[in-house]
Write a protein that binds this DNA or RNA. Structure first.
Lengths: 150, 150
DNA sequence: AATATTTAAGAGTATTTTGTCTTATTTATA
DNA sequence: TATAAATAAGACAAAATACTCTTAAATATT
């Protein structure tokens, strides 16, 4: 599994938020309902994104969360790093500590390129861009595909 | 994490075995000692490889495990598939069931290439080849680097 | 000011992965 | 044939991940 479940949920919610970019807060209840993700679990995940200044939140009636800046300025990598950290882009395929140029494992050289490739893919794509593609291509971000990018 | 711990241990042990290719059985006790992997845990993992006909085992004195065929004929992918299955090469980045050409998620298209790339990398490299590179380059397959490809 | 609605925080539970231990089974060797 | 050395198998334990529940804090609305 490339990303943790938490990270996946965070990405899906972020894409939702990016597709509803009119500045208003969206409640986590609505998000969890639309995306079929447990409310409390999603709440915690979004708290991490808020703590990382990717989202901003408001308590109380009509409160919720929204992107802290235009979706064009938040990359997929931002979300991944905020939730899963940079382990995926740091760690050794064989799990060896301190695997690097100095004392590499047999996988080091070949994996380096792949993982940088993945990182670049996430880095060069914004939430806005992904959400736009999702909307235009009628792509899924829910298991049952019920979310229609209203 | 790309591979599970089990898979990592299986790969490291397989590389060890491929570097000691003179047909004799090597005890799991020796393997676990050299590679710093828990004996019982490693035993179970190697049983999976044996069950998949990648290794063959012999009980009793001078028993142990060895590659079931020349290391040149076993790919890294063989080991990965035997332990982790093909999930990594099948599953959706967003964890959506049945994500494919018909009803893709926004990541589908871009991830497809990356994962095929990784698969090809594992498919085109044999244990023998990797072990040879490891030996010649004095590369690590243990956390402390104490294994010296005797 | 009171109330209802929402996120924040943290304790608690369940599931999966990782690792340990014990007992059985096989087999080479003396 | 007895013994010791090894894998096989399965129960058990610990740790990490995933998920749930309860209570607190903030805030818009009446």
């Amino acid at each position: 599994m490339l990303f943790s479940k938490s990270c996946i949920y965070g990405l899906r919610a972020s894409l939702y938020l990016a597709s509803n970019q009119n500045g208003e807060y969206i409640s986590i209840g609505k998000l969890s309902d639309k995306l079929d993700i447990s409310f409390h679990f999603l709440t915690k995940i979004l708290q991490q994104l808020t703590a990382n200044d990717l989202l901003e939140s408001l308590k109380g009636p009509n409160g919720g969360v929204r992107l802290s800046k235009p979706g064009k300025q938040i990359t997929l990598l931002d979300i991944v790093l905020a939730i899963d950290g940079d382990e995926l882009f740091q760690e050794c395929v064989l799990g060896l500590p301190g695997c690097g140029m100095e004392k590499p494992c047999p996988f080091h050289e070949i994996w380096l390129h792949k993982r940088d490739d993945i990182k670049r893919m996430l880095e060069t794509r914004s939430l806005a861009e992904m959400a736009k593609e999702g909307k235009e291509g009628h792509l899924r971000i829910t298991p049952d595909g019920k979310y229609k990018w209203d």
